[in-house]
Amino acid sequence: MEALLWLTEPLSHAFMVRALLVSLLVATVCGLLSCFLTLKGWALMGDAVSHAVMPGVVIAYALGLPFAVGAFVFGVGSVALIGYIKQMTRIKEDTVIGLVFTGFFALGLTLISKLRSSIDLTHILFGNVLGISTADIQQTLLISALVLAVLLVFRRDLILFCFDPTHARSIGLNTGALHYLLLAVLSLAAVAGLQTVGIILVVAMLVTPGATAYLLSDRFDRMSWIAIASAMLSSVVGIYASYWLDASTAGCIVLVQTGLFLLAFLLAPRHGLLAQRSR
């Protein structure tokens, strides 16, 4: 009875219910996408995009536009800029990524300090899922539906693109389009993710579930289900923990995710540390 209350009491608050629903949605989207990102090796790109959306969010808020629009423009813009600089110079990709995303992030930081709007810097940086507004929920719903639709429709093409882009291209798939499609979806998912955990930690949403699932499965379908499930579990447990411990929500969610990863790292039946030791 006591334990049940422990579960139900938080649900008497509307903000908790909303937070749980939004974060479950975000977990589904980011969890599925994280499989593609870990397999493609785009974790750093995910980090870059999520930081680079910052000025977009600030400008959108200042102009009264949906923040997703601003974030999307800057997310895709940063990716295009990274590609352009890499192509036109001899600088290596990881350097270009580091260069571009910090530049954008700094721009966002400066804008926020000068615009003196109602935006709360900590909400952008660390998320504010407990105080999420109805308008933000609507945007997250729309973004999530879009990202899920793209990932489901182009699932097989994207898997092939991650696995063997040369073959994909040789049989007539437009790998350039798939590249930018995945990046566009990444920008959108980063926007959805920063709703729950904020800009700084959104890369965890985009990488950790996929990494955990990758240790637990050798099939893409199973891997994506595990990734989604672990992302959802982390969100729910994290939000409850944050409620009862009165601790940072983003911190709790990501800590649970990291904990699940560590479990998989140690105990995964085939690819875990113990299994490898005993082999």
């Binding site: 397999l39 063997d164 990758y214 893409f220």
Partner: peptide, 9 residues
Amino acid sequence: SVDWNFPVS
């Protein structure tokens, strides 16, 4: 050039 750990059968 192939990622042999890729989760495909």
